[in-house]
C-alpha cells in the first residue's frame, strides 16, 4: 500500500467514493420503509432515559448530594453522556449483525461484488450510511436535550459531527471484526465485555472519579470516554480548550486505524 504514489492514492479514494454512494442508496431503500419508526424510537429512548434516570435519580441526588454536579444537576451530566453511549450502541449494532448478514446469510456483498463495485466501495458506503444514521440520531437526541434544557451552548451543534466521529470509530473497528467472524457468537462477547461495560464505565452515568484508580485509567484508554468528554463540553458549553484537541486527536486516530483495518479485513474475507 505505502508504495503507491500519493496522487494515485487520492485518485483511488475519489474513485471509491462515488460507487460507494450506491451502497448508501441500497441501505436507504431498505431503511426508508421504517425511517419514521426508527426516528420515533430514536426520540423515545433518550427521552425516557432522561425522564427516569435524570429526573428520578436526579431527585435522589438533589436530596443527598446537592452539589455533586454543579448548576447543571445530574440530568445535565447524564444527557451528553447518554448521547455518547447511544451513538456507540447504534454504531455497534449497525456494524455487526447487518454486516455479517450481508457477508454470509444474505450474501448481498457477493452479489454487489459481481457488479463494478469493490470491497473498498462497500466499506466506505457502509460507513457513510452509519454516519448518516448516527447524525440523524444525534440530531434528535440534541432536540431532546434542548427540551430538557440541557443543551445551552450554540456550540452544541458541533456535537453532531463529534457524535458521528465517535460512532464511526466503533463502526470501523467492528466492521473489521465482523469480517473475520464465521458466526454471530463473537458479537455476544463484544457486547457483553466491551460495549456494555463501556456503556457503564466511560463516565456516562456517573463521574469516573467515583471509581478506583485502575478503572479510571482503563476508561481513559477507551474511545467512548473521549467522545463523551467532548460532547459534554460542547453541549454544556464547558469545553476545555486545553484537553479538547487531545480528545479529538484520539478519536481521529481511532477511526483512522479502524478504517484501514476494516478495508483490509473485508477485502480478505470477500476474496476467500
Amino acid at each position: 500500500m505505502s508504495a503507491v504514489p500519493a496522487r494515485a492514492r487520492t485518485g483511488a479514494v475519489a474513485l471509491s467514493l462515488r460507487p460507494a454512494t450506491h451502497l448508501f442508496h441500497r441501505n436507504w431503500l431498505v431503511y426508508k420503509r421504517i425511517w419514521y419508526r426508527s426516528l420515533f424510537f430514536g426520540f423515545l429512548q433518550p427521552f425516557m432515559f432522561l425522564a427516569a434516570m435524570g429526573l428520578g435519580v436526579g431527585a435522589l441526588l438533589a436530596r443527598s448530594n446537592p452539589t455533586a454536579f454543579g448548576p447543571v444537576g445530574y440530568i445535565g451530566f447524564l444527557g451528553p453522556g447518554l448521547l455518547g453511549a447511544t451513538v456507540m450502541q447504534t454504531a455497534s449494532f449497525e456494524s455487526t449483525y447487518p454486516i455479517m448478514n450481508k457477508i454470509m446469510w444474505g450474501r448481498n456483498y457477493e452479489a454487489i461484488l459481481s457488479s463494478p463495485l469493490s470491497t473498498r466501495n462497500i466499506v466506505l458506503g457502509e460507513l457513510g450510511w452509519i454516519a448518516f444514521r448516527i447524525a440523524s440520531i444525534a440530531t434528535i437526541f440534541l432536540t431532546v436535550l434542548v427540551i430538557f434544557g440541557i443543551a445551552r451552548s450554540p456550540l452544541a451543534v458541533l456535537a453532531i459531527p463529534v457524535a458521528g466521529l465517535t460512532g464511526l470509530g466503533f463502526a470501523s473497528w467492528l466492521i473489521a471484526f465482523a469480517s473475520t467472524q464465521l458466526n454471530d457468537i463473537g458479537f455476544s462477547w463484544v457486547y457483553r465485555f466491551v460495549i456494555n461495560p463501556l456503556f457503564l464505565f466511560s463516565g456516562t452515568f456517573f463521574p469516573l472519579t467515583q471509581m478506583p484508580q485502575a478503572v479510571q485509567v482503563f476508561a481513559w484508554l477507551t474511545p467512548l470516554f473521549h467522545g463523551v468528554e467532548l460532547l459534554r463540553g460542547l453541549i454544556l458549553g464547558s469545553l476545555d480548550l486545553g484537553t479538547a484537541p487531545w480528545h479529538l486527536a484520539y478519536l481521529l486516530a481511532f477511526f483512522g486505524i479502524g478504517l484501514l483495518l476494516a478495508d483490509r479485513s473485508l477485502a480478505r474475507r470477500l476474496a476467500s
Partner: peptide, 11 residues
C-alpha cells in the same frame, strides 16, 4: 457500576 458509581453519590 450503579452501586459504586451512583451509590457513592446517592448514599
Amino acid at each position: 457500576g450503579i452501586g459504586m458509581g451512583l451509590g457513592g453519590l446517592v448514599r
